[in-house]
């Protein structure tokens, strides 16, 4: 029946038929692709590109959050930041006393904090992912859920949990340390210990992300590759080196990107646990940025300069890894 009807008749039938409204909408793909893309592009442009351009503009001026734009200062803010701002970078060295020098500032704190926490997380994450992978089918789902939990906790809550546990008077960790005969450290009041404390909290919160990603990588390595290595008589370390590691390299890179990205913008974990102190001993760039602009004098020009530096560093590092491992293609 229908087969006897020619094309024009079919098209005619379309016009008359009671098709749904959607199917009668004739929009070409050329139009549709922009209808689909433009809202997101416009919104993201308004909340990322436009502010970014303006941030660059602001960083070239004396600019106060409340009183607004001041004189054009060129790269003055950047100069101040890099060479005249001890909170950002401070290095004092007296050649006559080579063992006593001062190296601090948010850049240094950032390097220590990010370097230390992310490397511990990656190593620990790989180890625990492999441990999880070795478990039997009965235990794996349970342990996996447990290993993921810290990552699901709201960062602000994580910080508060740790404050509860390391509190000077009621902290349960202090109690346990004393119980085994160790005197509790000054968790947040010595500069070095405060940095270690925030690193510990960061490791607790974010190692699970590395575990989860690396574990997905381990699952994707075909069993036959292990079997081939075993048949070839490879010892365990060689299997790790030549089968496991190549199989999860890509995942490690992804974990690294997401950890670095978060680490450069960390705020609540540090601010709640140590209040960036003692003094400014745990103040990283993002916190300095916040305090420069939104607390105190409101130096938005300097803050914008710091923001640009932070964006360049973060996006630069992350994108270089992303492009190198060919992720997101």
């Amino acid at each position: 029946m229908g087969a006897m009807i020619g094309l024009s008749a079919i098209t005619e039938r379309y016009r008359r038929s009671e098709q749904s409204l959607l199917n009668r909408l004739e929009i070409s793909d050329r139009t549709l692709r922009w209808l689909f893309m433009l809202p997101s592009i416009v919104v993201l442009a308004f909340i990322s590109i436009v502010p970014l351009v303006r941030a660059v503009w602001m960083s070239l001026h004396d600019w106060n959050l409340t009183s607004g734009k001041g004189a054009f200062v060129g790269f003055g803010n950047y100069e101040t930041l890099l060479f005249g701002n001890p909170e950002f970078f401070r290095f004092e060295f007296d050649p006559s006393q080579p063992f006593e020098f001062v190296l601090s500032g948010s850049v240094v704190h950032q390097a220590v904090y990010t370097g230390l926490s992310v490397s511990i997380e990656v190593v620990l994450g790989i180890a625990l992912a492999m441990y999880l992978f070795s478990l039997s089918e009965r235990w794996q789902p349970i342990v996996r859920t447990i290993f993921v939990l810290p990552m699901l906790v709201t960062p602000i809550a994580t910080a508060l949990m740790w404050r509860l546990m390391i509190d000077g008077s009621i902290g349960v960790i202090n109690y346990m340390l004393q119980f085994v005969g160790i005197s509790p450290p000054a968790w947040t009041s010595s500069p070095v210990m405060a940095m270690l404390t925030v690193v510990i909290v960061d490791v607790w919160q974010w190692t699970p992300l590395v575990i989860l990603i690396v574990f997905a990588g381990l699952l994707s390595i075909p069993e036959s590759r292990y079997e081939a290595a075993r048949v070839d008589g490879a010892p365990r370390w060689a299997i790790f080196r030549h089968v496991t590691l190549p199989g999860i390299k890509y995942m490690i890179a992804i974990a690294l990107v997401f950890r670095l990205m978060r680490s450069f913008r960390e705020f609540p974990l540090i601010e709640i646990v140590t209040s960036h102190g003692p003094g400014t001993a745990t103040q990283i760039m993002n916190i300095q940025l916040y305090r420069t602009v939104f607390v105190g004098t409101g130096d938005a020009g300097l803050g914008a300069a710091l923001g640009i530096v932070l964006i360049v560093v973060t996006v630069g590092i992350c994108m270089s890894i992303v492009r190198r491992v060919g992720m997101m293609q």
């Binding site: 970014l52 923001g307 964006i311 994108m319």
Partner: peptide
């Protein structure tokens, strides 16, 4: 990837 605080100022 960009830290949102930097965007927040403007």
């Amino acid at each position: 990837m960009a830290p949102p605080l930097a965007i927040l100022i403007p």
